[in-house]
Write a protein that binds this DNA or RNA. Structure first.
Length: 569
RNA sequence: GGGCCUGUAGCUCAAUUGGUUAGAGCAGAGCGCUCAUAACGCUUUGGUUGCGGGUUCAAGUCCUGCCGGGCCUACCA
């Protein structure tokens, strides 16, 4: 038994996430957490909402609400949807929590004491009408290179040239349209990542078992151009963690807050504190402080590829730079993007399926299965309704659901809703045990390695073995001449359902719980030995024929959804 | 522009890191079964591995040049 700390990239607060966001971090993290718990390990699985930054302020303004109120509401919404998808967080925190405020300010003070913070004076675009400094991409104007009239301050979407907002002709605020923009001087704190480049590079070089996607992005940032650049960690905003040195004020930084990407990863730690303060745990330090028991913790992070630089460089720089014994990540699992029907998911255009809509259409397990079995591990993947319908109908309804149905219904009609007695295993049953043993070993290996798609394929392969056995054994035939043998075959079939429910939980938790409830075998845990596992439900054990575990998606439904989610939410 | 990833059967993906005849699932075809959600099982059609060179006893895998797709490029998060 080991101890595993698992975090999912924390979703941004401004709105409901789409399926691509879900499959890129929260869902695979949940799969891994559920698997490790099922194997008897001690797991702390944390996630939170990322609440600071300009977009949160703007979204709140658009909703006509104070930003703190808006965030509190959206946090509740996201938490509810997470429960709907059965994401088994031990705690779903908030980056705006007092715990994170304190800890972020603490880290900043430690980094300053270590000489890793420098002050930089710079000029930035300020919009008097908006009352705020504008991040580059909130400024639009005419591209000096190609004349495109809606070029953004960071890059022209037309000619792809990288721009500086001061280069734009006739710049205007995308928030208000204001054109009276001016350059104002402002002072910010920078984290001297460049000073830690060698340390970070050595650390990354040691991670030879990480996904290529993870290490290649990290190395690019380490070695690109002049190497790892210092990063501004403060912003001129109202909503965020006030810039302080621990409890003390930071002269010259009054009215400023830390940059979201500085405080967001620190929330991983603060979230553990929130977990304790919420009465769900008693000791967060044994998960996070290597001097207080976290030495034997294995820490795994899940995220989309866009998050990789912050998790491989910025956050480790914060932790290492503090000089304190915080736990560093051991393994970073990163994902590519999920596309939707030949294009990208688009939050602004309402294109694709969002988490709340998905649950309105079908239960969580259908989505969990498809998303995980098609997780964008090696390359971007694509969601299509046709593929979704085909996969769900075949894998879940036909292969697994129908197996449970045919076994239990046959048993009920010939022996009643009780595990039948009599008969003994023969060579066919022993061969099945061997096949299941091999298949389970492969499935286990892939789950340990977080090879999500392969694990799903292996699991499906195990389900298929049940149908193959049933077809060969044909209890409906043997029953006519040899009821005792038929009883044995059916008994084995019932135990197979229990076995499947015990090992499939990480993918489809609700269906597994329903099957186990029907079998009155809620205590089923992970099987150590197949032969034992398939003999657990003993003759005389009562059960109920389960309801349809997975229904099929009809062509009419599929066509309806295709239209409904094509755009304009 | 630069960097990284990617291109394998109609579709979605594998291929133990250079090693026999490139494999699965779905879709298609045929047969079987009749317990079951018109479900299940067996058999089977289908590939010049994007294209052209090169290295090697041996290339889907390594090198190189094209062509296509995607991502990142540090003030969105």
């Amino acid at each position: 038994m080991a101890r595993h700390l698992i975090t999912s990239a924390i979703p941004y607060i401004n709105g409901i996430k789409h399926l691509g966001n879900l499959v890129g971090s929260q869902l695979p993290a949940d799969l891994y957490a559920r698997y490790l718990r099922a194997r008897g390990h001690e797991v702390l699985f944390l996630c939170a909402t990322d609440e600071h930054g300009t977009p949160a302020e703007l979204a709140a303004a658009k909703a006509g609400k104070p930003v703190d109120e808006y965030c509190a509401e959206m946090h509740a919404v996201q938490a509810g949807i997470a429960r709907g998808f059965r994401l088994s967080f031990d705690h779903f925190g908030r980056s705006s929590s007092p715990q994170n405020h304190r800890l972020t300010q603490h880290f900043a003070a430690r980094l300053d004491e270590a000489g890793l913070i420098r002050e930089v004076s710079e000029t930035q675009m300020y919009s008097p009408q908006d009352g705020r400094f504008l991040p580059d991409r909130y400024i639009e104007g005419t591209c000096p290179n190609c004349g495109f009239e809606s070029a953004r301050g960071d890059q022209c979407d037309n000619c792809t040239k990288q721009l500086d907002p001061v280069d734009l002709i006739d710049p205007r605020s995308t928030i208000s349209g204001a054109t009276d923009l001016e350059m104002r001087e402002t002072k910010h704190l920078f984290l001297r990542q460049s000073a830690m480049k060698e340390r970070l590079a050595d650390w990354i070089d040691g991670k030879t078992d990480w996904p290529v996607l993870t290490t290649s992005i990290a190395k690019k940032w380490l070695n690109d151009g002049d190497g790892l650049q210092d990063r501004g960690i403060t912003r001129d905003l109202d909503w965020g963690v006030p810039v302080q040195k621990g409890d003390a004020p930071w002269p010259g930084m009054e009215g400023k807050v830390f940059y979201v990407w500085f405080d967001a990863p620190i929330e991983y730690i603060a979230c553990a504190q929130e977990w304790v303060d919420a009465g769900k745990g008693t000791d967060w330090e044994r998960w996070w402080r290597t001097d207080k028991g976290a030495d034997d913790v294995r820490y795994t992070q899940f995220m989309g590829k866009d998050n990789v630089p912050f998790h491989t460089l910025s956050f480790p720089a914060t932790i290492l730079g503090s000089g304190e014994p915080w736990k560093l990540v051991d393994y970073i699992k990163s994902f590519n993007y999920l596309n939707y029907e030949g294009g990208q998911f688009s939050t602004s255009r309402g294109r694709g399926v969002f988490m709340d809509q998905a649950l309105e259409v079908l239960p969580a397990d259908y989505w969990r299965w498809w998303l995980l079995s098609h997780a964008p591990e090696n390359a971007d993947a694509e969601f299509t309704w046709e593929n979704f319908q085909a996969s769900v109908n075949k894998d879940l309804a036909d292969v697994l659901g129908n197996f449970a149905s045919r076994v239990t219904k046959f048993c009920r009609s010939k022996f009643g809703e009780v595990v039948p007695e009599g008969g003994a295993w023969g060579e066919r049953e022993q061969a099945l045990v061997r096949d299941l043993t091999d298949g389970l070993a492969a499935y286990t290996r892939q789950m340990e390695a977080i090879e999500v798609r392969k694990a799903a394929a292996s699991l499906r392969g195990l389900w298929v073995l049940g149908n193959e056995y049933l077809q060969e054994a044909a209890p409906w035939s043997t029953f006519k001449t040899d009821p005792e043998t038929a009883a044995m075959q059916v008994r084995l079939g019932l135990n197979l359902i229990r076995f499947y429910a015990a090992i499939s939980g990480p993918f489809i938790p609700d269906a597994c719980a329903e099957l186990l409830a029907a079998l009155k075998a809620e205590d089923a845990d992970w099987p150590d030995d197949i032969e034992t596992a398939l003999s657990t439900l003993a003759p005389g054990h009562a059960f109920k024929v389960p309801d349809v575990t997975f229904r099929k998606i009809t062509d009419a439904e599929r066509e309806d959804w295709q239209t409904r989610f094509a755009g304009a939410r």
